[in-house]
Design a protein around this nucleic acid. Structure first.
Length: 486
RNA sequence: UCCUUCUUAGCUCAGCUGGUUAGAGCACCUGACUGUUAAUCAGGGGGUCCUAGGUUCAAGUCCUAGAGAGGGAGCCA
């Protein structure tokens, strides 16, 4: 039996909670978190995703059909007409006194996996299609949206153009890791060349293609005409990485700026990340407060020394302090002088100039020595990509890595090599196919200028802003080795 | 890919040096309660102890292999 309800325009719960128009008749729609009460009065906690906070619906049970009330279970979707009231109970300022309730979508309580209790993140990962309905993942979804919006507003305010770079690419010279192949050929029956290799000339694009690992090279092409651009798109790495900070499919922001040297690049990276964190503080406070409490709850059992700084305090701390800038060589010196090195406490030996820093070394610098974000520059040429600008010392390149506490490398970037000869020389030394990359080299031939850029891993930013520990929890549907569910 | 830990009810977990019929809290069902706050109280149903072998009089517990998950490392954003 369906009840025809009076048609009232729906109001979002966020707006109801901020309203003081008592006695006004309103309609709300959403999903039930819990229902409790007795024979005479029931309280329904309703959430529609617009806020971390639930709206309390008060139903005088004697006014409603008993069968209807029974169908209002955790997870069910309902539409409520009622009167906005100042709450008679503690715990909320406003509530809705229901006059009409319709169950829009039933939810079998026996089968519904979400309960009004704390679930483990691992369990929720297995039911990622439903985890939006929890406080934690609702908060993360709202913060994620705010951060996406802030990225665009930051660059737009500064006159940067958003460029859509290709997702399918034929370039395999970017050196950013293993790639996913893109093909329309039948892999069990692929056309072969006379030598017996797969004949990609018969494939859809007439050559071997992959999913992009970076939009940087195309971004540079745009920057060397439009001056300042950024990309913000999906990125794919087929590395067999099983960590709390790697995904096979993730979103990356890559600004690229003509006439920027490495210092300008660092200035932008610092201003950008601070803008994003500040945007979260100004626009997502309720969600951040919830996430902060969640984190403290989770870390209750830990020793005081192992507990992280309170989330909101941590974000303010980064926004209010200058990032430390130092060269790779200076970092090695500091590490050589450090207690853990002298006492042999590092698990990996410090090898000195020419070897890459282990993450335990980076973490020591950021979390123990400086206790704030650190930008490391001027890395040895041998451990960095071919396109980075070579320094006059002949040993280092104008590279920069921005390291954040807890999550490590959040940004990797550099000033780009603008000299045609030096770039070509480096490509030959690294055995890169110069024919295929001629379009990239052309930019250094025709009006080349100094330019710089960097890549910011969006989900790593999300880890930092939300205080979550696993990157699989800050993207709605994570793709990792052995997992492409949903 | 390597190292390491884990897998027991729908969920979170306990189950000791192998020993009777495998437990708790929450959830679910039934009942009580006129303002609850993850409501509370009483009762009830619910198990392939991850899978396959093995040791033993006896295996949730020990051994081997496999699967899945967590954490750390490498690669990086």
């Amino acid at each position: 039996m369906s009840i025809i309800m009076e048609q009232i325009k729906r109001t979002k719960i966020k707006d109801i909670l901020a309203s003081a128009e008592y006695e006004k008749t309103v309609n709300v729609k959403g999903w039930v978190r819990t229902r409790r009460g007795n024979k005479f009065v029931n309280f329904i906690a309703l959430n529609d995703g617009s806020s971390i906070h639930n709206l309390q619906i008060v139903a005088d049970v004697t006014q409603f059909d008993e069968e209807l009330i029974k169908r209002i279970t955790t997870g069910s979707a309902i539409s409520v007409n009622g009167t906005l009231k100042e709450s008679a109970g503690k715990g909320q300022s406003v509530e809705i006194q229901a006059t009409e309730i319709e169950v829009v979508g039933d939810c079998n309580a026996d089968e519904y996996p979400l309960q009004p209790k704390k679930h483990s993140l691992e369990f929720l990962r297995e039911i990622a299609h439903l985890r939006f309905r929890t406080n934690t993942f609702g908060a993360i979804a709202r913060v994620r949206h705010a951060m996406i919006f802030a990225v665009h507003s930051f660059f737009s305010e500064k006159g940067f153009l958003n460029i859509h770079t290709p997702i399918i690419t034929a370039s395999d010279a970017e050196g950013a890791g293993e790639m996913f192949k893109v093909t329309t050929m039948d892999i069990n029956n692929a056309p072969k060349t006379e030598e017996g290799d797969v004949d990609y000339s018969k494939d859809f694009f007439g050559k071997a293609t992959n999913l992009t690992v970076s939009g940087q090279l195309e971004g540079e092409l745009a920057a060397l005409a439009m001056s300042e651009i950024y990309t913000f798109g999906p990125t794919f790495r087929a590395e067999n990485s099983n960590t709390t900070r790697h995904l096979a499919e993730f979103w990356m922001i890559e600004p690229e700026m003509a006439f920027y040297d490495l210092d300008d690049n660092m200035d932008l990276a610092e201003e950008f990340t601070k803008y994003l964190l500040n945007y979260a503080l100004e626009n997502c406070m309720e969600d951040l407060e919830f996430l902060s409490k969640r984190l403290q709850e989770e870390e209750k059992g830990k020793k005081a020394a192992d507990q992280s700084m309170e989330l909101i305090e941590k974000l303010r701390f980064v926004v209010d302090n200058d990032y430390i800038r130092l060269t790779y060589t200076e970092a090695i010196d500091i590490l050589m002088q450090s207690k853990p090195h002298k006492k042999g406490k590092f698990q990996y030996e410090l090898k000195g100039f020419g070897s890459d820093l282990q993450s335990e070394h980076e973490r020591y610098l950021v979390e123990k020595h400086f206790k704030k974000p650190v930008i490391l520059t001027d890395y040895p040429m041998s451990i960095k990509a071919f396109y980075m600008k070579q320094s006059d010392d002949g040993k280092t390149v104008k590279a920069m890595d921005v390291l954040f506490p807890q999550i490590g490398e959040i940004i990797g970037g550099s000033q780009r090599e603008e000299s045609y000869d030096k770039l070509l020389e480096r490509m030959r030394a690294m055995d890169l196919p110069e024919e295929e990359m001629s379009w990239y080299l052309d930019t250094r031939k025709f009006g080349s200028v100094p330019h710089s850029g960097f890549g910011l891993g969006f989900e790593r930013l999300m880890l930092f802003v939300t205080g979550m520990g696993n990157i699989r929890d800050v993207i709605p549907f994570p793709r990792t080795p052995n997992n492409a569910e949903f």
